[in-house]
Nucleic acid binder design. Structure first.
Length: 421
RNA sequence: GGUGGGGUGGCCGAGUGGCUAAUGGCAGCAGACUGUAAAUCUGCCGGGCUCUGCCCUACGUAGGUUCGAAUCCUACCCCCACCA
């Protein structure tokens, strides 16, 4: 079995690692941890890189520890942030941590000999007294050392509070704690975590007399130069209440050709040879987007399950295939309705003639009436697949497909439905 | 505490009394082309309406001067630099 460093390197997932790591891995699997910020009640696809790294670590024979920052979330990590962060209440963080834990279970194995561990640093941080902390942890760092860190340096002009300045010490304290309590010798993180990770290694070295290692993952950006993981509606979340399975699937399906191979290596467990084969198919006929389909299906089924994925693929096929919506039967429309935003409309309201502008806003395809109006002027909207030319278009019973649905579309790939009754 | 600089739309950043819902860039949306891709070109991009126009809201906060203020005055809040 290859070691974690070799595995991740082969997949292009290593941005940097501490020098001693390779040597340490030659002596056997390693336990490692990665911290997750509890600032939201769900992970988003950007968080998936370290999650996958932990999953690989487990496959390489180590125990993965997912650390939810219930304690550190109260402080706020300055890394990669240009301004001071709002502080969250303890209750919010606790609820968020619980939600994130459930999602991690889709990627990590929580049973068996290398069962994943899920810990919340609030458990041990809450009990640490200020004097104790300053004496046992603070004593091992000079301010000079701390000021050298990019996370601090980059904030010297815009300002950084003492609270955030202290953050790296808390994270170092966490690492030292896990080193002792869980025999965690490795910390994984995004490349912006390098400073915090090395501070932890430093502390373990000085206080525990031990040796620990760090590995940081690259920051993902798209070929188009944008931050990875954003869609038109902001972050792409794992929580179906925030990002529907349909949108989740569509996000991956719409991946840029130039990014898709990298995304397969990062976000799926597919062997590199299979990815190479897939990419050859892709190159032969890019229009089929075999690679994107595979990527989208793989991720969607892991996160939302096989049943949901099947429905989403079916809905996508109906909406983007050459299916004549007018000929589609009610059962098919029901499938689509399960995946896109549906606006309920009374039958009497429809009979009276509903303003399309109001319906578009109600169905979420336009943020405001003005936006709906402008979109109509630009021929951006379609009803049942037919572009709307009239700005004052109204919906009536004659627009129904079957007995109760109207399909609304903005642009090529944004769909919503009206359900009557 | 002192001195100086600064707080403008999702972000960056112009604008120093009317021509400013506010130049420009980024991000976003749409149209054309295509493959539900990229690149490119074009249009849109605070909200509402009875929409070639009208009405709200907006330039840190609260007042004031003025026919008229993002632009001037006062107080307050916040940020930065240097000094103490």
């Amino acid at each position: 079995m290859s070691d974690i460093l070799a595995l991740l390197t082969a997949r292009g997932m290593v941005h940097d690692a501490t020098p001693g790591l390779a040597e340490r891995l030659s002596r056997g699997p390693i336990n490692g941890y990665c911290g997750f910020d509890p600032t939201a009640d769900s992970l988003h696809v950007g968080n998936l890189v370290p999650v996958m790294a932990l999953a690989w670590l487990q496959r390489a024979g180590g125990v993965p520890v997912a650390l939810v920052g219930g304690g550190t979330g109260l402080i706020g990590d300055p890394s990669g942030k240009r301004s001071e962060r709002p502080m969250l209440s303890a209750e919010t963080i606790e609820a968020n941590a619980a939600a994130i834990a459930r999602q991690l279970g889709q990627f990590l194995e929580f049973s068996g000999p290398t069962a994943a561990r899920l810990l919340n640093n609030a458990v041990w941080l809450a009990g640490v007294g200020l004097l104790e902390f300053l004496r046992d942890t603070g004593k091992h760092f000079t301010v000079n050392y701390m000021l050298q860190k990019d996370s601090v340096k980059s904030r010297m002009d815009s300002g950084i509070s003492y609270t955030e300045f202290s953050y790296m010490l808390i994270q170092a304290h966490d690492f030292a704690h896990l080193y002792r309590a869980e025999r965690c010798e490795l910390q994984l993180g995004g490349s912006d975590q390098w400073g915090n990770i090395t501070a932890g290694i430093e502390l373990i070295n000085r206080r525990e007399g031990g040796s620990a290692h760090g590995l940081v993952l690259p920051l993902l950006t798209t070929a188009a130069g944008a931050k990875f993981g954003k869609s038109e509606d902001g972050n792409v979340w794992l929580d179906p209440a925030r990002t529907t399975p349909y949108r989740f699937y569509q996000f991956w399906l719409n991946a840029d050709d130039r990014d898709v191979e990298r995304l397969l290596r990062f976000f799926t467990f597919q062997p590199l040879e299979e990815i190479a084969t897939l990419m050859a198919t892709q190159a032969a006929d890019p229009g089929q987007r075999a690679a994107q389909r595979r990527l989208a299906e793989d991720l969607t089924s892991r996160v939302h399950g096989a049943a949901a994925t099947g429905r989403v693929i079916e809905a996508s096929r109906i909406l983007f295939g050459n299916t004549d919506l007018g000929a589609a039967d009610e059962a098919v429309l029901e499938v689509v309705a399960g995946e896109v935003t549906v606006m309920a409309l009374g039958r009497a309201d429809l009979a009276a003639g509903a303003s399309l502008i109001d319906v578009l806003v109600g169905a979420g395809l336009a943020a405001s009436k003005g936006e709906a109006r402008r979109g109509l002027e630009q021929k951006a909207f379609a009803v049942n697949g037919v572009k709307v030319a009239a700005i004052d278009r109204r919906l009536g019973p004659e627009d129904l497909l079957g007995t109760r649905f109207v399909v609304l579309q903005k642009g090529k790939r944004n769909f919503a439905m009206v359900r009557v009754g």
